[in-house]
Design a protein around this nucleic acid. Structure first.
Lengths: 193, 193
DNA sequence: TAAAATTGTTCACTTAAGTTAAGAAATGGG
DNA sequence: CCCATTTCTTAACTTAAGTGAACAATTTTA
């Protein structure tokens, strides 16, 4: 399990055994059962997550309806905005599958970053990459119709469509479950001829 | 003009006179005329922008139509995804108003970052903040209707609605110019009674 | 395993955005 | 100042998403 984390890090920086030890001593690894709520609306938190195995999702509760806005799967990192802004969370995070995560706090990160400047650099690069990636995702969302977004998701993250309930996928695509059902039927009709 | 930049930086780190000098010696400041295209689709670039005064926008050309996806105004920073991924740009950047920008290259940033670890930290924090902010913007976009998005923009960035042509605003909101026109008329009707 | 809860589909109807087109208003450059 | 271009609005029509409801399929759990 640790290897997955170290492999990921090695894409950005190379670690000495000492540094690996320092990381391991933080005791970051957690196994989390499906359905566990990691963060609730209104809570304060300073925890960041990195998914080693499984899937977690973020969702808002608006008019008694869940609005799912993101899924994080293997190799995805999430620092909730409320951790950055130090304000109560606007959304929930819950576990869709039995998962293995690393959970770190901002304190732990600050300490590691000041001890090993390499980490600071990795965090900077990682944030820049995530920002760029998210900019592109956002752009794609803005410039596409729901149907195009679904087809796109089918290309870019086919696993999600298998492992995630459709009503959660629907709000992720910005539409209602019924519309996703209909849209899928429409696509299926087209592909028949 | 330099003061604007230094004021901005001082929100994150404090600079010595030496460090200020090092920054100034990079000769970052540029005045740019309205209409100037800073980056074209297909181009490679390693330039980042910071808006001191004015407004720039990013847009895609899809089916001979401009799709505007973002506006950057005073105090906004932009590193295009293509700079991070080192691939040809998927979009255009152009100047909506006569503007004053700083334009830096990744080389310059790398040099400054390695010379002054403080900068590395500032870049990390800034990226994390921008990422968090954009996550919230994206979430708001996904969970709102076009009308709600327009009303929201009216709240959060009222200046944009004044200084930006409406057909550009429309695609920023993910709709056609005609729909924005209609939607505005609809809102105006509601507010009449 | 049976009952309950969750999830997914279908349908009829409503609402709003897309499309096409025409024309008015504003802006810009010669 | 005038012509050309760009920008904005309006309208009629089309298309697709939202809504509410019923029901089927699946999963959970008692």
């Amino acid at each position: 399990m640790q290897d997955i984390l170290f492999d990921f890090i090695s894409k950005y920086i190379s670690l000495t055994e000492d540094e690996k030890g320092a990381l391991l001593s933080l005791d970051l690894f957690r196994t989390v059962k499906k359905g566990t709520v990691l963060l609730k609306e209104g809570q304060k938190s300073n925890e960041s997550y990195f998914v080693l195995k499984g899937c977690i999702r973020t969702y808002y509760m608006i008019d008694c309806e869940e609005k799912t806005t993101a899924f994080y799967t293997e190799m995805d990192a999430l620092t909730p905005p409320c951790v950055i802004s130090k304000t109560p969370s606007l959304y929930y995070i819950s576990c869709i599958e039995d998962s293995i995560l690393t959970i770190s706090t901002s304190d732990m990160e600050a300490e590691i970053n000041s001890k090993f400047p390499k980490f600071e650099m990795m965090c900077r690069i990682l944030s820049e990459e995530l920002l760029a990636k998210q900019q592109m995702d956002f752009d794609e969302f803005k410039t596409s119709s729901p149907e195009q977004r679904y087809l796109n998701l089918l290309q870019s993250r086919p696993d999600l469509i298998q492992r995630v309930p459709q009503h959660q996928l629907a709000s992720y695509l910005g539409i209602k479950p019924q519309s996703l059902s209909r849209l899928r039927a429409r696509i299926f009709e087209k592909n028949k001829d």
